[in-house]
């Protein structure tokens, strides 16, 4: 009786399987990146270089975020551009 109860309770609180799965996903990514150049850093630098060819911008105002999922990952690039940028685009167009 008490064993059954224990098992019932443990099923609800068993967090080790979650830990194992999170680790497996994370380490698969990290092992792939090991020895490789820092992808996020490279993307950030190159995107920054392209944009700053046309607009003056503050390197600190460029934010690159990565969200790794099981099947799809998203890369989000957030660039804050100074005012006047849209006018220049309009003028060019």
């Amino acid at each position: 009786m008490s064993m059954n109860l224990l098992r019932l309770l443990s099923r609800r609180t068993a967090s080790a399987p979650v830990a194992r799965e999170r680790l497996q996903i994370l380490l698969a990514h990290e092992r792939g990146l090991r020895g490789q150049p820092d992808l996020l850093g490279t993307l950030r630098e190159e995107i920054l270089a392209v944009v700053s060819r046309h607009v003056t911008l503050d390197p600190d105002k460029v934010i690159v975020r990565m969200d790794r999922g099981k099947s799809v990952s998203t890369l989000e690039v957030d660039i804050e551009v100074p005012n006047g940028f849209d006018k220049r685009i309009a003028a060019a167009g």
Partner: peptide, 16 residues
């Protein structure tokens, strides 16, 4: 704690 599923088991760690 490992038996109750609260802690990674030996097999989990070794497999990873």
């Amino acid at each position: 704690r490992a038996a109750r599923g609260e802690m990674l088991s030996i097999d989990d760690v070794l497999e990873i």
